[in-house]
């Protein structure tokens, strides 16, 4: 795989973040949260740099990144779409909504559309069970989504 080139400016920002946490490896999860919000994802190259900054091994960083579902090693689409598959959403038909998204975007869960516009993921309960089934696009929440409504949601971001 080609090596990912990371922007110097962002790397400086990351190093500042590490410093603000006293380069303490006990703060690894906090650092990873910040790093993901700066870079959008956590490629291996970035993990090596974080390991060096926090005086720990790259294996330890990789172990933590892959343990938690919030961290991702692949870049998300411009509009990440997440379908809630919590129990309340499940019993109100979230699976059918997911199927419709897969069909409409022609990608599987965990993939990004070729134009980089949308990515698809599932998550467990955003605590909006009253609105089930729930879909998130970026940080915007769509409630009571039906398979028929999928087209409209996608269209909203396609213009």
């Amino acid at each position: 795989m080609a090596k990912v080139k990371l922007s110097e400016k962002k790397l400086d920002e990351l190093k500042e973040v590490c410093k603000s946490f006293n380069n303490d490896k006990g703060e690894l999860i906090n650092v990873l949260h910040k790093a993901q919000s700066i870079f959008g994802y956590l490629p291996a190259e970035l993990q090596e740099i974080i390991a060096k900054e926090l005086h720990t091994s790259a294996a330890h960083v990789y172990g933590v990144v892959t343990f938690y579902s919030f961290f991702t090693m692949t870049p998300n689409g411009q509009h990440p779409i997440s379908i809630c598959l919590g129990t309340a959403c499940y019993v109100r038909g979230a699976e059918k909504v997911l199927e419709e998204f897969k069909r409409t975007l022609n990608i599987q869960v965990g993939e990004t559309t070729p134009d980089g516009k949308f990515s698809l993921s599932c998550l467990r309960c955003v605590g909006a069970c009253g609105l089930a089934p729930v879909v998130l696009v970026g940080e915007k929440v769509y409630g009571r989504v039906s398979p028929d409504g999928v087209k409209d949601i996608v269209a909203e971001y396609n213009n």
């Binding site: 006990g26 906090n30 949260h33 933590v64 343990f67 938690y68 579902s69 919030f70 961290f71």
Partner: peptide, 23 residues
Amino acid sequence: RFGAGAFVCGEETALIHSMEGLR
């Protein structure tokens, strides 16, 4: 302290390890 999406972290010993920056 922030979690990062792991259900098992609701278990108190797992939660403590997560707060320490571990899996």
